[in-house]
C-alpha cells in the first residue's frame, strides 16, 4: 500500500513537473512560429521562462485585500496542475484512481472560474467586463468539452479517461470520435485564450480584462497557469481522441504523442495568427453551432459508428 502510494505520488509529480516545466517551452515555440508568420525574428524560445522569472521577482501589488483575492492565482495554477495529474500525458493518468472524466471536467472549469472571480474581485470596469465575457465563454465552451468526452465514454462504456484511450487504441478511428475530436480542438482554441477567442482579455478593448489589475508574481502564476492549461488540453485531445498510431513500444509512443501535441499547438498558433478577434456575441454563436454539430457525434455513437 505504502509503495503504491509513493509510486502514484511520484508519477503525479512527473505529470505536474512536465506541465510546469515544459509549458513555457511550448509557449516559446508558439511565439516563434507566430513571429515567423509575421515576418519577424521573434524572441528566443526560452523567453517565457525569463518572463516568469522576471514577474516572480517583482513586488506583489494588490488592488484589493481579502483572502479569496489573495489566493486566486495559486488556486488557478493549482487547479491546472491537478488537471495535469488527472490527464494521461504520455503515460496513464497517475491520479486516475481519484476521479473519472466528471472530475476532469470540473477541475478543468475551475481555473476559468478562478480567473473570472479575480476579475470580479478587482474593482475595475474593464475587469468586470472581461469577467462577464469569461463567464459567457465558459458557458459556451464547457458543454462542447463535455459532449465530446461523453461520446468517448459512451463508446468505451467507461467514464475513465484511460479506459476511453485504451478503447480507442483497440478499436481504431470512428466517425463519432473524429467529430468529437474536431469539436474538442475548436474548443481548445478558446480554452487556451487564443485568437479569435481571446475576447475576455482583449488587450485593445479592455486591456487584459480580468487580469488588468494583476502584476508581478500574481500575474506570473496566471500566465503560467494559462500556458500549462493549453499544454494539458493538447495532451488530453491527443491521448483521448487521436491515440494512433500505437506502436506498443513505450518510448516510441511517447515520442509520437509529443510530436502530435506539438502539431496541435502549431495549428492553434496558425489559427491565432490568421484571425482577428471576434465579438463575444459572434463567438457564442459560433460555439453554439459547434455544440450542435458535436451532438451529431453523440448520435453517431448511439448508432455505433
Amino acid at each position: 500500500m505504502t509503495v503504491w502510494l509513493i509510486k502514484s505520488f511520484l508519477l503525479c509529480l512527473l505529470n505536474v513537473a512536465a506541465a510546469l516545466l515544459l509549458s513555457p517551452l511550448c509557449e516559446g515555440i508558439m511565439r516563434k512560429i507566430r513571429a515567423a508568420l509575421h515576418s519577424r525574428i521573434g524572441p528566443p524560445i526560452t523567453q517565457p521562462y525569463w518572463d516568469i522569472l522576471k514577474l516572480l521577482g517583482k513586488e506583489d501589488l494588490r488592488s484589493t485585500g481579502g483572502v479569496v483575492y489573495a489566493g486566486l492565482p495559486a488556486l488557478t495554477l493549482g487547479s491546472v496542475l491537478v488537471l495535469a495529474a488527472l490527464v494521461p500525458m504520455g503515460t496513464a493518468a497517475p491520479l486516475a484512481f481519484a476521479g473519472d472524466l466528471i472530475v476532469v471536467l470540473y477541475v478543468a472549469a475551475m481555473s476559468g472560474v478562478a480567473i473570472m472571480l479575480t476579475g470580479f474581485a478587482s474593482a475595475s470596469p474593464y475587469a468586470s467586463i472581461g469577467s462577464s465575457r469569461e463567464m459567457m465563454m465558459l458557458l459556451s465552451v464547457e458543454p462542447i468539452l463535455a459532449i465530446a468526452l461523453v461520446v468517448g465514454a459512451f463508446k468505451a462504456r467507461t467514464l475513465a479517461l484511460g479506459g476511453i484511450a485504451n478503447w480507442q487504441i483497440q478499436n481504431g478511428p470512428s466517425i463519432s470520435m473524429l467529430i468529437g475530436g474536431v469539436a474538442f480542438f475548436l474548443a481548445l482554441q478558446a480554452v487556451a485564450g487564443k485568437l479569435p477567442f481571446d475576447i475576455s482579455e482583449a488587450d485593445q478593448e479592455i486591456m487584459g480584462g480580468p487580469l488588468i489589475e494583476q502584476s508581478g508574481p500574481r500575474l506570473a502564476l496566471f500566465r503560467w497557469a494559462m500556458w500549462a492549461k493549453q499544454l494539458v488540453f493538447a495532451f488530453l485531445l491527443v491521448e483521448v481522441f487521436f491515440p494512433w498510431p500505437h506502436f506498443g513500444n513505450y518510448l516510441i509512443d511517447l515520442l509520437a504523442t509529443i510530436v502530435k501535441v506539438l502539431v496541435v499547438l502549431v495549428l492553434v498558433t496558425v489559427i491565432d495568427v490568421v484571425n482577428p478577434r471576434l465579438r463575444i456575441d459572434q463567438a457564442m454563436g459560433y460555439f453554439m453551432r459547434v455544440g450542435v454539430s458535436s451532438l451529431a457525434a453523440l448520435a453517431f455513437a448511439v448508432i455505433g459508428k
Binding site: 509575421h38 482577428p276 478577434r277
Partner: peptide, 16 residues
C-alpha cells in the same frame, strides 16, 4: 486597424 481588432499579422505585414 488590424492591431485594434487583434489581427497582428496585418499590422506586421503592412508596416513591413
Amino acid at each position: 486597424a488590424g492591431h485594434i481588432i487583434g489581427f497582428e499579422t496585418v499590422l506586421m505585414q503592412t508596416w513591413r
